[in-house]
Every structure is written in C-alpha cells, then in structure tokens.
Amino acid sequence: METLNYRFEGGQRPLSGMPQLVGVVGSGNLEILIEPAHLKGACEIEVRTAAVGFGATWQAVMADFHARWSLADARVSVNDMGATPAVVSLRLDQAVESIAALPGGAS
C-alpha cells in the first residue's frame, strides 16, 4: 500500500453538510469519503492505494479534480484497489455532487 497526500489552497467552493461515502472498495475497487473540515480554505486529499508507483498519475487526477471543483474546507479520503484514472475522476465527481445535493452542501 502507498499513501499519497495532496493539499490545494485557495478553493472557491466551501464544503458543508454531512460526510458522504461513494463507491465500495470490495465491488468497484474504489471508495471515496468527502467531508467538510476547517482547513482555512484548503482542500486536503489522502489517497491510499494498492497500485504503488503511480504518484504522477494521481497528482494529475487530483489537480484536474481541484481545477473542476475548487473545493474549500474539504477533506477527501480515497481508498483504491486499482481503479483506473477515469473511474477515480467519476467517483470524485459523484462524491461532490452527492454532498452538494444536501442542504448547505457545496456552493
């Protein structure tokens, strides 16, 4: 297992509401937990992956995610067992959309 950590400053969309979990590691090879956190406007992402040695790919996927959503005060936890970058992007979008649909979610 490899753990990768990313922090993006200057987000424009504050995240609030209840934590949301999307995906299931056992069936879809990937689960994502997204939750509000007091991070002074930053978005922190922790990736735990069984696919060791793909840090540059993960960096690109996370940078693209941040460019799309520009989340602030958000913590994202990714548990991966070998999902492709396209599946990771899809699940990240689903996680933000699920929390945004709640009252007080992402603006």
Rank of each mutant, 00 (worst) to 15 (best):
N29L: 15
L92N: 01
S77C: 13
S98Q: 11
S77D: 14
L71Q: 07
L71P: 07
A72V: 11
Y6I: 02
A86W: 15
A101P: 05
T49Q: 06
Q20K: 01
D80E: 09
P14F: 14
L90P: 01
E31G: 09
P36C: 06
C43D: 03
P85T: 06
E31V: 02
A67P: 12
P14S: 14
V87A: 04
A86L: 15
H38M: 11
D93Y: 03
A100G: 13
M18F: 13
V24P: 05
R7Q: 15
G26T: 15
V78E: 00
R13K: 10
F8K: 04
V87T: 09
A56N: 11
L33C: 02
N79P: 03
V24L: 15
A63P: 11
M81H: 07
S89G: 06
E31I: 00
E46A: 05
A67H: 13
V25F: 02
A95N: 04
T3P: 03
M62T: 05
T49D: 07
G55A: 10
N29S: 13
V61F: 01
A106H: 00
S70Q: 15
A106D: 01
A60G: 05
V96K: 01
A60N: 10
F54K: 08
V25N: 03
A100P: 11
L90E: 02
S77A: 15
Y6C: 04
A37D: 10
V78F: 01
G53M: 06
E35K: 15
A56R: 14
A56H: 08
H38V: 11
L90W: 01
D64C: 05
C43F: 05
G28F: 06
